Amino acid sequence: MARHEYQAALEELRTDVAALGDDVLAQLDRSLHALEHDETAAANGVIEGDAEINDRYLELEAACIDLIALQQPVASDLRFVVASFKILTDIERIGDLATNLAGYAIGTDGEAIADVTLFEIGAAAHDLVEDALAAYETGDADACHRIAERDDEIDSRCHRASERVVRDLIEQEAGAVDPWEVEAAIDDVSSVLLTIRDLERVADHGVNIAARTLYLTENDPALLY
């Protein structure tokens, strides 16, 4: 492969990884919409679309392996390919979490999950991932530190939301008479807690993307640990 073709292949990889990230963000958007509006059709669309995301992930993973095996990149090019490989994994896992969230939208009473705090957390996690992908696409190292700092606030909001959900359940149990009502409440609370957990994980994967971007642009591993 000629040098100009090799550089074009690297740029194509960056473009394709960013495009997959954009499509996964769209999946996440649809999942959050399905949760907020209790829309089963939208949730099913996300679940059905996960197979295509997985197929594209595997294709891009293979492209990374081919670049390493056939071109034997060194220095910054090697960091770029390896970081892109890692970022792909985070993108695919965000897609899996979007699928989980869609499943919660189908399996949970809409009223149980109708909490503005959850949707604010979801929007914050979505924006963090979006900014991390933009930093990867443009090589913006400065943005990576700001992205990591924003994750601390999301973690705190998730912790507060979980505490409130558990406290509400305890209060419900204390005043409940029908044991079946208690069981139903526990099921709903479990889904809400899983929703909070997965939103937090979405943001964590966004931070991973920022960390790998900082590493590939500046050879700085500060956010990797």
Rank of each mutant, 00 (worst) to 15 (best):
V202L: 07
E137L: 11
S162R: 14
L78H: 05
S162Y: 07
R167A: 08
T99G: 02
G103P: 02
L216P: 00
R201M: 14
D131E: 15
D142N: 09
F85V: 00
L224H: 06
E11N: 13
Y225V: 08
R201H: 13
C144P: 04
A143Y: 07
V46H: 05
E130V: 04
I87A: 01
I186T: 10
R56I: 04
E130W: 09
L78R: 09
L97T: 03
I186Y: 05
A134G: 12
T217K: 06
L35K: 09
R197W: 09
L169F: 02
R167M: 03
E130S: 15
E181N: 11
L58Q: 14
A19C: 08
A114M: 06
L78P: 02
V17S: 03
S162D: 14
I154E: 01
V189N: 07
G107Q: 10
D140C: 07
A83L: 04
E173I: 15
R146C: 06
F80C: 05
L35A: 06
A135P: 00
A185L: 12
A161D: 07
V17G: 02
E36Q: 15
E183A: 12
F85S: 01
Q72R: 13
R201S: 12
A176F: 07
A203C: 12
E130P: 01
W180N: 14
A143K: 11
D23N: 12
C64N: 12
D55Q: 14
E59C: 06
D152V: 13
D115M: 06
L60Y: 04
E218L: 06
P221A: 15
T117K: 10
A211Q: 11
A125M: 11
V116G: 01
D204Y: 03
R14L: 07
E52A: 15
E200R: 03
R3C: 04
L194T: 09
E163C: 03
L28Y: 01
A222H: 11
L133R: 13
I47N: 04
T217G: 04
R3H: 13
D22A: 15
I186L: 12
G21L: 07
A112P: 04
L32S: 01
V189T: 15
D127A: 15
D96R: 09
Y136I: 00
Q71G: 00
I121N: 05
F119G: 05
E137Q: 14
D50W: 04
D188N: 15
A135R: 03
T195G: 15
R150P: 03
F85W: 03
Q27S: 14
A19R: 14
T99A: 06
L20Q: 10
S31I: 00
A2R: 14
V116D: 14
E183D: 10
T89L: 08
H126D: 13
A69L: 12
A105H: 01
I209H: 00
